[in-house]
């Protein structure tokens, strides 16, 4: 993907929320490590994670955009889109699993155990990354030439 800043932010919001959302609907059915929770509780937790990733992601995009300026090609290699799970995931982990940020979202004392968080994070990240680097292009022939912008 050859994004502009505006395009990266738009793409991140749309793809994370739609594709990540669909993925959450699916994995909430068999989410490991939370056997006591209801489907809606699990889904709520997963969607909370998506929102955290998206909101923080907009900030991360500003950082990446700055780094890109140091690259001659002004691009962001496919691999970078994958490995940024490390920094983004760590921050999200601190905020979500340690519940310093998202208590407004969750019921009572329900929280994602660490293994469940990692499962949800890694699989969602992979699905979103694969989608953005391939099938997304089927839905719009303009998106990739407009730096990832939808509007």
């Amino acid at each position: 993907m050859l994004p502009t800043l505006n395009g990266r932010i738009q793409s991140r919001i749309v793809i994370t929320l739609i594709i990540g959302g669909l993925w959450s609907l699916l994995i909430a059915l068999f989410l490991p490590g939370v056997s006591g929770a209801s489907y809606s509780d699990k889904l709520r937790a997963l969607l909370g994670l998506l929102i955290v990733l998206t909101v923080l992601g907009i900030g991360w995009e500003l950082v990446y955009h700055g780094l890109m300026q140091l690259r001659w090609e002004k691009d962001w290699p496919t691999l970078f889109g994958l490995v940024t799970i490390v920094n983004e995931g760590t921050l999200a982990y601190v905020l979500v699993v340690h519940r310093r940020f998202d208590h407004w979202w969750f019921h009572d004392d329900y929280r994602l155990p660490r293994s469940t968080f990692l499962f949800a994070l890694i699989t969602t990240w992979l699905v979103v990354w694969l989608w953005a680097n391939g099938p997304m292009r089927v839905f719009t022939v303009h998106w990739r030439f407009r730096g990832g912008r939808f509007v």
């Binding site: 502009t4 001659w72 691009d75 990739r144 030439f145």
Partner: peptide, 25 residues
Amino acid sequence: RRGGDGWAYQGFNYPKSVWGGQLKA
């Protein structure tokens, strides 16, 4: 741009972002 041994190095005939990214914009 990277270079060395006489050559200028670049993956394609323009920096990659001319086909959809920052340089195109």
